[in-house]
């Protein structure tokens, strides 16, 4: 993982979304199918491989909260749409590539995250995700490293724990898999001093109940903060 150190040395505030998800995948966290491509034509190629519909996102380390920047195009159903949206996204300031993703189905959105607390060190968060996550603020924390039992307990503690049960014809959430994500997020925090914060929002729940990381932010500490 030299590239994390490298990113810190270069003074980057965060990994880009593609790098962030590769890091999660390296720790066994399921991520959606995606490809980082330079332009519209290669985006169309990737989209064909994944199968339509797809999601297209602007990539760049300064692009963090994409919805606010209009840097996400959802539910693109054909090559023409992918080309058009590619042009629009590449024009956004700071955009230096495109991420093509499978369009993950499923209505439930959770959030997993990590912060570095001054007293307790890396702490893992779990809760209800999506764009309203901060407003609903239905989240709980645990100090890393987490046991699987800790992770399972977190799922019982949120007010909206019912969302993990069978829901509108969709299967109950695979709690073991979800616990695996939380334990892995804690492990990442314990292993990499350089990482200041992680948001995986949303962790989408597919109709079969399996969780998948659809968007991720990995914020880095400044070089000075890591090695005073």
């Amino acid at each position: 993982m030299d590239w994390i150190e490298k990113a810190v040395r270069e003074g980057k505030p965060a990994l880009n979304e593609y790098e962030a998800k590769q890091l999660l995948a390296d720790f066994g966290i399921p991520i959606c199918r995606e490809a980082l491509v330079p332009d519209g034509e290669t985006a169309v190629k990737a989209a064909r491989e994944f199968g339509y519909p797809v999601v297209l996102k602007a990539a760049g380390e300064r692009i963090q909260h994409k919805t606010e920047l209009g840097a996400v195009a959802l539910n693109l159903k054909a090559g023409k749409e992918v080309r058009e949206e590619s042009r629009r996204l590449l024009a956004i300031a700071g955009c230096d590539g495109l991420i093509v993703q499978e369009m993950v189905r499923g209505e439930r959105e959770l959030v997993c995250g990590l912060i570095r607390d001054a007293q307790f060190g890396p702490c893992v968060m779990f809760g209800l995700g999506g764009t309203l996550t901060e407003i609903v603020a239905d989240v709980v924390f645990r100090v890393a490293p987490l046991s699987a039992a800790d992770a399972l307990e977190m799922m019982e503690e949120i007010r909206t724990a019912k969302v993990l049960q069978a829901f509108r014809g969709q299967a109950p959430v695979d709690r073991e898999a979800l616990a695996g994500i939380l334990v892995a997020v804690g492990a990442i925090g314990s292993q990499f001093e350089e990482i200041r914060e992680i948001d995986i929002n949303p962790v989408k729940i597919r109709p079969d109940g399996s969780p998948v990381a659809v968007d991720a932010l990995v914020a880095l500490r400044s070089a000075a903060a890591v090695r005073p």
Binding site: G113, D117, E134, M154
Partner: peptide, 17 residues
Amino acid sequence: MAHTAAMASPDRIVDGM
């Protein structure tokens, strides 16, 4: 920068601990 940090109040963390 992250939602997680915005919601990480000391009280929530102590509660989790």
